[in-house]
Nucleic acid binder design. Structure first.
Lengths: 231, 231
DNA sequence: ACCTGAACACCGTTCAAGT
DNA sequence: ACCTGAACACCGTTCAAGT
């Protein structure tokens, strides 16, 4: 007789919004965006569709809650007392790693941000970044500009990195993956895409996190140039 | 008798991939992301579902083609002979305006970028920006960093702007919209979201395009600081 | 108050059949 | 080669009925 697995236990606890969101995150992680379905969710939770709708208004709200849960834990305050620049890098890397671990986050965050009114996750991210911008000594009128550039770069670049990691299937080797990438790039017309082709060659040789942080440093250099710290 | 409208004409031209993509863009523009359906597409084109599948592999390919068509026309070369900085602003504003006119572009671009292998639209955008980065005199090793920061900021910020414009429904006044926004912001706990609340107040008073360009200038300042032009 | 699960409307996609 | 349109499998959501 097999030992009882977590998956096999059938409703020892009552259904709750938390349990539903937790199951949704698990499903998104293992089966991807298309894998989250009310059908399989009801199976996993050993319940009926109506029970889920009692705790959650609809699928959109469930996705928003799952997104917020993961982001909240990613932004949980870490160490402390470093320079504001290091704090910004830490927040950025926290989101980078969260998106890497939960690739569906990239698409979901873009959806959540482009929805009005904002759900809970948008202010959470903006505040996490904005506080470090404030700590940097940036004047109030520029918080939005600096925060926006950082936030959009972090989410966009992290999403792209996650897409690349995901494309590297468990079975395939890194060499195989890079081959398929370079094959795609070689199909670009060298006359139409000179810059993209050169960049594509380089991308394969660099460390992902290092390259990600180079973008952060570029923005920080712009901040230092436009808002030099008082002497 | 009403004059013949473009919509009423029933298949005077043969079906083609171009006509299908054109109809898809129209549908996305008028009915939003959820409005593009094979059911209504077949009605609009006075045909059957199978006919569309003869020209297009599936819905994903159709969305990619619609996205690429709009982006291609948005990046069509404009004036000329300005400074590289002005060229970058022009490219950025071209994408900004395209996303404003076609709000579904924001989500679609994020989907297209996070798909491996890249479709045609990703290199198109990166090249459009990357060429100006090259013109700026940025050394080759930094093209990826600078291009990535610019691209992700442009797409992210433009998407957010489009979401706000869309929220301002045709009937509603700008005052009403701003009221609803500020109401949402006031629900944020001042202790938990001090920065976000201050920024939210400011956002309502500023011009969208101006604020967008401020982000571009921040990145350009970083480029100038890290890669000063040879004397 | 909380849950069940059949039923509904709708979706993307297929495919035998036509021209 | 190109098109038709009924059929299929699947989806999110509802709701009368139970406890």
């Amino acid at each position: 007789m097999p030992p009882p697995t977590r998956r096999a236990q059938r409703r020892t606890e009552a259904l709750s919004r938390e349990r539903i969101v937790e199951a949704a995150v698990e499903l998104l992680d293992t089966a991807g965006e298309g894998g989250l379905t009310f059908r399989v969710l009801t199976e996993r939770l050993a319940t009926g569709a109506g029970a889920i709708y009692w705790h959650v208004a609809n699928k959109g709200e469930l996705l928003a809650a799952a997104t917020d849960a993961v982001v909240a834990s990613a932004l949980a305050p870490g160490g402390s007392r470093e320079s504001p620049q290091d704090e910004i890098r830490a927040v950025a890397l926290g989101l980078f790693d969260a998106i890497d671990a939960h690739p569906w986050l990239a698409t979901q965050l873009s959806v959540q941000l482009s929805r009005t009114p904002w759900g809970p996750v948008a202010p959470r991210i903006f505040e996490g970044i904005g506080r470090q911008v404030r700590a940097l000594g940036v004047p109030e009128e520029s918080w939005f500009t600096v925060g926006s550039v950082l936030m959009h770069y972090v989410l966009g670049a992290a999403g792209q990195n996650a897409a690349n990691s995901r494309a590297l299937e468990p079975g395939a080797s890194r060499a195989e993956f890079l081959d398929s990438v370079s094959k795609a790039w070689e199909e670009l017309d060298p006359d139409d895409y000179p810059v993209t082709r050169i960049v594509a060659e380089q991308v394969r040789e660099h460390d992902d996190r290092e390259q990600f942080l180079a973008g952060i440093d570029l923005v920080l250099a712009g901040v230092a140039a436009l808002h030099p710290p008082a002497p």
